[in-house]
């Protein structure tokens, strides 16, 4: 077999990816995790996290009914509490995009579709292209594509770059999120490398995981990706969005992620234009904690809709 051929520009780009100090990363996030938001700041943080959620259902057993139910939940998080923000988007499989689009109507909530043979990405490009076009034709506002991890780990960076660039070309008006599945990438150095590569290939957002593999959005991984976004911004002035996904199921974790993004990237990223949480059960815990902040009483999941 011939060795993978990467063009010289790409090789010099990736050569510039810094190596990541894993111990330092762990210590830095530990400091942030030791912090705790209280009172009004916590209330504001919880609202912000709610508004950043991509409410997700990505199961083989998804039915049109389940997706409509999720879209209803997106628009009615907890009607007993007035003045709650809406989630940012609903994230579904391509076959469900049309149903979600119709159910969400003019609510302003976006429809994100996973794509390119999610979650494995193990399909020929023609299939990935059709997958993406199908989602776009059905009205997807955002495309969450997976990279070919096997090719990336084999060192075929050009292939991965070209694939992302080709999907980006299809997304004329939709925003493109690129999923790395960091749980399969082994080291923070690899995470940094794929972040730089994806951003160069045209990603609007970079996203940690599919949610199907553990570990998913761990803090050191997220810190590494935020570092890549920051370096790109410092160099070019162009903002790239960030979406941690998988395993963020508690309000406490979500607030710590917000602290991290504020510390690394600053206030400009603290909006659902540039920051998202991919999650299914996070919304309910945020609602529970929000209600707790309002009433002073610990809440029960029994009084909140399941989905």
């Amino acid at each position: 077999m011939l060795p993978p051929r990467n063009n010289p520009d790409l090789i010099s780009l990736l050569a510039k990816s810094p190596t990541i100090d894993q111990t330092g990363s762990i210590e830095r996030v530990a400091r942030i995790q030791a912090r705790s938001l209280k009172g009004a700041a916590k209330l504001q943080g919880l609202r912000m996290a709610l508004s950043m959620i991509d409410l997700t259902t990505l199961e083989g057993k998804d039915t049109p009914g389940k997706v409509r139910q999720l879209c209803f939940k997106a628009q009615h998080l907890h009607d007993q509490t007035s003045d709650l923000p809406k989630v940012a988007a609903v994230c579904v499989y391509p076959s469900m995009v049309g149903i979600a689009k119709k159910a969400l109507g003019d609510s302003g909530i976006k429809v994100a579709s996973v794509s390119t043979a999610f979650p494995s990405g193990q399909a020929p490009f023609s299939v990935k292209k059709d997958d993406t076009l199908f989602a776009l034709e059905n009205g997807a506002d955002e495309i969450d594509m997976v990279i070919s991890r096997g090719r990336f780990l084999a060192g075929d960076y050009q292939f991965v770059f070209d694939e992302i660039a080709a999907i980006k070309e299809l997304c004329t008006s939709a925003r493109l999120k690129v999923i790395f599945e960091t749980g399969e990438l082994d080291s923070l150095d690899q995470v940094r490398k794929i972040s730089d590569l994806s951003i160069a290939a045209g990603a609007d957002f970079i996203k940690t995981s599919t949610g199907k593999i553990q570990p998913a959005a761990t803090f050191p991984v997220v810190l590494t990706m935020l570092g890549a976004i920051k370096d790109h911004y410092d160099r070019t002035g162009q903002m790239i969005g960030m979406k941690p996904a998988g395993g963020i199921s508690s309000a406490k974790l979500a607030l710590q992620h917000l602290l991290l993004v504020k510390e690394v990237l600053g206030e400009a990223w603290l909006t659902n234009e540039w920051y998202r949480f991919g999650a299914s059960s996070l919304a309910n815990d945020l609602l529970l904690q929000y209600q707790k902040q309002l009433t002073g009483k610990y809440q029960s999941a029994a009084y909140f809709s399941i989905d």
């Binding site: 009483k297 610990y298 809440q299 029960s300």
Partner: peptide
């Protein structure tokens, strides 16, 4: 009070 007010 935390116990008696706890919704769960």
């Amino acid at each position: 009070p935390t116990l008696s007010g706890h919704m769960d």
